[in-house]
């Protein structure tokens, strides 16, 4: 009989606790500055104590508590497992490539790919050309919308400076104006593309979601809240 996930986790924690206790004892026990008499318990005390508490409770769970009830939980279907794996794998790639490729590219590719594959029941190799076409179109569409947004923002800034209207140099105001203009353009594009390619909803829907979400996050986090989102290869 295999281990239940609960006991398996307890086993992992036993190993982790042992590692943590060894690590805690390896820490140099320094006392706080100005403690000549050595009254401070030192920097090792709490980590060592915590390690032993963790070891005791994980041992208890593994040996005693969990033998009482082994729950039969519903097993995950292989196709669902595949979906979770794809989502996880892409998330790790997203973090890994974020600084190199930049926020705009990474986010567009991430959202497009996941929305595309999460909606398909049977992932087949023959879908690859359609996926790649959509990915290219989505990336271009996002880059167009992003570049237009940057142009509007810069135009508003320089206009504000030359006319001394301080409102235009306010990042919240320019983000708001940019948002409304881009939203209008985006909706027109969605309307036209949907009419033009009625049967390609498979591909168009993820494109719109990827572009819309990427741009909104950029405006809110990047422009309004001044978060320095990595530019990567999109240097403008």
């Amino acid at each position: 009989m295999g281990l239940s996930i609960r006991r398996l986790i307890a086993l992992v924690f036993i190993a982790f606790s042992v590692f943590y206790i060894i690590f805690s004892f390896s820490i140099e026990s320094r006392r706080m500055i100005g403690d000549e008499k050595g009254w401070d318990p030192g920097s090792r005390a709490i980590p060592v104590g915590t390690g032993f508490i963790m070891l005791a409770s994980s041992l208890y769970i593994f040996t005693k508590e969990e033998r009482k009830r082994e729950e039969n939980k519903e097993k995950i279907k292989p196709e669902t497992k595949r979906v979770i794996l794809i989502n996880l794998l892409l998330s790790f790639l997203y973090v890994f490539l974020f600084r190199r490729l930049g926020f705009i590219l990474c986010t567009t590719v991430f959202i497009y790919t996941l929305v595309y594959f999460n909606r398909i029941k049977n992932v087949q190799i023959k879908l690859l050309p359609e996926y790649l076409t959509g990915l290219t179109a989505g990336t271009i569409f996002t880059l167009l919308i992003y570049s237009l947004g940057r142009f509007i923002t810069r135009y508003l800034y320089s206009w504000g400076r030359s006319t001394d209207i301080s409102l235009f140099t306010n990042s919240n105001f320019s983000a708001g104006i940019t948002f409304f203009i881009l939203a209008a353009i985006f909706l027109i594009a969605v309307f036209l593309l949907k009419r033009w390619r009625k049967n390609k909803n498979h591909m168009l829907f993820p494109i719109f979601i990827a572009t819309g979400v990427t741009e909104i996050i950029y405006l809110v986090f990047g422009q309004i809240f001044m978060v320095s989102l990595a530019k990567g290869v999109i240097f403008w």
Partner: peptide
């Protein structure tokens, strides 16, 4: 659709 958006929002 919601999960990819949540994942991106969580990471950002």
């Amino acid at each position: 659709v919601l999960v990819p958006v949540i994942l991106v929002l969580s990471m950002i």
